[in-house]
Design a protein around this nucleic acid. Structure first.
Length: 430
RNA sequence: GUGGGUAUAGCGUAGUUGGUUAACGCGUCAGUUUGUGGCACUGAAGAUCAUCGGUUCGAAUCCGAUUAUCCACCCCA
């Protein structure tokens, strides 16, 4: 037997309705915030990710799925922003009125060590806003993510924000950091020693206890922001305060994607183990120009669907029941089952009901058991008598009550009336 | 890329110091007299014990490799 390879996941019907719950909620909230769906290819020229995500990042250096095509080298998208911005730029959305707001639900690919909540192929909901430089845009995007998580029952996810400044203030900050770490350089862990030159900001985020101790009093970026970046960050914070969105300023959020500028943020869940970041995003004012477009401010976020679902399960979110059968038609004999199929089809088409008939040749009793098993709300039996006389009855499987029906006239109406009447009486208080 | 754990029917598990036909629960299917479900009872199907190799008279059980999975690091969503 050929089996699924690692790092990928099958979603069975018993799970897929959970995914649908998340996807529908995401689309609904996106609409509330004025975001429209955008779709773009699963793969792009490798060059796009190298330039936008950043040549020195782990994602580009060791996690990309790259294939050599005949004309070029292509990569399965490791994230959504780069391809999304390429599409926005290439299709002239920047010539429309600003801001442009788009969202997407995609799978993305990274070649990492597999763990729960971290797969080779994983799924993201992402949203991007283009053309707005004002901190109010940052606030709206964060509010959007917050609202979506709340809708999904994940109010427990904590918001961490930080500003990593613009390239200018970051350069100055890097110098300060190197100055600070220089005396300890030999004591740092090996990865941090290489970070010293490449990206000293990452040392602050190191998990090693020794490095943590060394970094305890390191300068924080927020103290070295230029006036404009500082004001941007302060305004964002007061906007979040005003909207009643709780956050924690976390100078250790650095983000592993090079394109971020100024605002970066993460939502962290405590309920799903080590892969606790369920949403991450920020501003990337330099990305579009880096890709060859005009200097255009932009920002966005992405949510990991697998992690979101893990967190929802962990907090006991009620996903409800998967779709239920409205009517099961039991039948005995070939003519009877033909009739059952006709009735079923007409009820589906005219009434929009989910109707099932016997398709596996079960005996009568087994059909009833099956009807019970699939939680059919109503039962209709078609035997020889019913076929000959046209007289049958609809049984409410919950109460056992039976309502007489005429198969030859007005059956659909009778069924619908019974259905509605039972539902209303069930809703009435005693 | 580094370190560690796990691998037995569709699912969840048992299997004692290696010793005959690998057990149980759930699920599936069929029955418990002829046309009305849920409960209960009876029975059936379903496992090359992850794969390959080794040790042994004999391996689900011990050893090695491979694969998958989980945990931590790293990184990220």
């Amino acid at each position: 037997m050929i089996t699924r390879n690692k790092g990928a996941e099958d979603v069975m019907p018993s799970e897929s309705y959970i995914w649908q719950t998340v996807e529908r909620a995401a689309a609904n909230v996106a609409q509330l915030y004025g975001f429209s769906e955008i779709r773009f290819p699963t793969f792009e020229k490798t060059e796009l990710f190298v330039r936008s995500v950043g040549e020195t990042t782990d994602v580009v250096q060791k996690e990309m799925w790259t294939v050599k095509g005949r004309e070029s080298t292509y990569t399965l998208r490791p994230e959504g922003t780069a391809g999304c911005m390429r599409a926005v730029l290439q299709n002239g959305l920047l010539n429309e009125s600003m801001p442009q707001k788009v969202y997407y639900q995609i799978s993305a690919f990274r070649h990492e060590n597999v763990q729960k909540g971290r797969l080779w192929e994983f799924h993201q909901f992402g949203a991007e806003m283009v053309g707005a430089a004002d901190p109010s845009a940052d606030a709206e995007v964060i509010a959007f993510a917050r609202e979506l998580l709340d809708t999904l029952g994940l109010s427990e996810a904590r918001l961490h924000i930080n500003s990593i400044g613009c390239p200018e203030c970051r350069r100055a900050y890097y110098d300060k950091l190197r100055e600070y770490f220089a005396p300890y350089r030999e004591q740092l862990c090996s990865t941090c020693q290489s970070r010293f030159d490449k990206n000293p900001m990452r040392i602050i985020d190191c998990k090693s206890p020794e490095d943590k101790a060394i970094a305890k009093d390191a300068p924080v970026i927020t103290d070295y922001l230029c006036d404009e970046c500082r004001e941007h960050f302060d305004t964002l914070r007061s906007l979040l305060d005003g909207m009643g969105i709780a956050y924690e300023v976390d100078p250790r959020i650095v983000r592993g994607l090079d394109y971020y500028t100024r605002t970066v943020f993460e939502f962290i869940s405590d309920s799903i183990g080590a892969q606790s970041t369920i949403c991450g995003g920020g501003r990337y004012d330099g990305l579009i120009s880096e890709m060859g477009g005009p200097q255009t401010p932009a920002l966005g976020f992405a949510m990991g669907i697998e992690r979101v679902i893990l967190a929802m399960k962990a907090v006991g979110y009620d996903f409800g029941e998967p779709s239920v059968c409205d009517l099961y038609i039991a039948s005995m004999g070939a003519d009877e089952s033909r009739r059952a199929a006709v009735i079923a089809n007409s009820l589906r088409r005219e009434g929009g009901f989910r109707v099932e008939t016997e398709l596996c040749g079960r005996g009568f009793k087994a059909q009833l058991k099956y009807a019970n098993k699939i939680k059919a709300k109503y039962l209709l039996v078609i035997g020889q008598t019913e076929l000959e006389t046209g007289k049958a009855s609809i049984k409410n499987m919950k109460t056992g009550e039976q309502t007489p029906v005429d198969l030859n006239s007005g059956f659909n109406d009778t069924f619908m009336n019974t259905y509605v009447a039972d539902r209303v009486s069930a809703e009435l208080p005693d």
